[in-house]
Design a protein around this nucleic acid. Structure first.
Length: 222
DNA sequence: TTCCAGGCAATAC
DNA sequence: GTATTGCATGGA
């Protein structure tokens, strides 16, 4: 791993919180040993997911639904989609947008997100067996840098680092940087760490867990 | 009751 | 280029 400051941070977070087992998947047995969020679907220390196209699509849907939204709300929406058998690209595209919006209501911003899911599902259908590029994802309406990187890292195991609000908060609070620009922070991680998808997954999840747990970060205004 | 959560696009300057 | 605003639910 190397003894960079970020390497040290990673080891400290892993020691404090233990392996997180992201991305959570409905129907996966694992447990989340930590305190926050749902207990469903986490698989600590197992980086072999997704194991099929269904799980891959589910991760992508979750990545879109969790935009500025607490995970338990996303989970409610995912469970409803699963209950009506709409958790596949084809099935989701077969639903009228209004119905889709009604199903994902608990995840918030449901009108916008219904549209985003439609756009993404159409794109997903068009790339059988191929990994999308970051630029392709970014060109889609509703997919920004964090969602694109989450999809690449967790659904396709591409070693690209995900930066989110917690990443900024934890690094700023640790006095490691004042940088806030997405691409600059992403580059900072990627040049300090080995290019390893499992490591990036674990590190990102740990930053979120740590950020959630610590109450006294200066919550920067959006 | 208010504040916030694993962002993004549109608009304004 | 950076700053602000709308989008919306459910839990603390």
């Amino acid at each position: 791993m190397g003894k960079t400051a970020l390497g040290e941070l990673y080891r400290a977070l892993l020691k404090e919180h233990g392996p997180q087992g992201w991305w959570p998947l409905l129907g996966v047995r694992g447990t989340n040993p930590t305190k926050t969020g749902s207990l469903r679907g986490y698989h600590p220390g197992d980086f072999t997911y997704p194991r099929n196209a269904g799980q891959r699509f589910e991760i992508c849907v979750g990545a879109i639904l969790t935009q500025n939204t607490a995970w338990p709300n996303v989970e409610k929406a995912l469970l409803r989609l699963k209950a009506v058998k709409a958790l596949s690209a084809a099935a989701l595209l077969g639903l009228p947008e209004k119905e889709l919006a009604a199903h994902i209501r608990p995840a918030g911003y449901f009108n916008q997100k219904a549209k985003k899911l439609k756009v993404f599902a159409h794109f997903f259908q068009g790339l059988p067996g191929r990994t999308p590029t970051r630029d392709e994802l970014l060109s889609l309406w509703g997919i920004g840098p964090e969602t694109a990187d989450s999809i690449l890292l967790y659904a396709y195991r591409v070693p690209t680092f995900v930066v989110d609000a917690y990443t900024r908060r934890v690094l700023l609070s640790a006095g490691m940087t004042r940088e806030t620009r997405y691409d600059a922070l992403k580059a900072l991680f990627e040049r300090s760490l080995p290019r390893d998808a499992a490591l990036y997954q674990e590190f990102h999840a740990l930053l979120v867990e740590h950020g959630k747990g610590s109450e006294d970060y200066g919550r920067s205004r959006r």
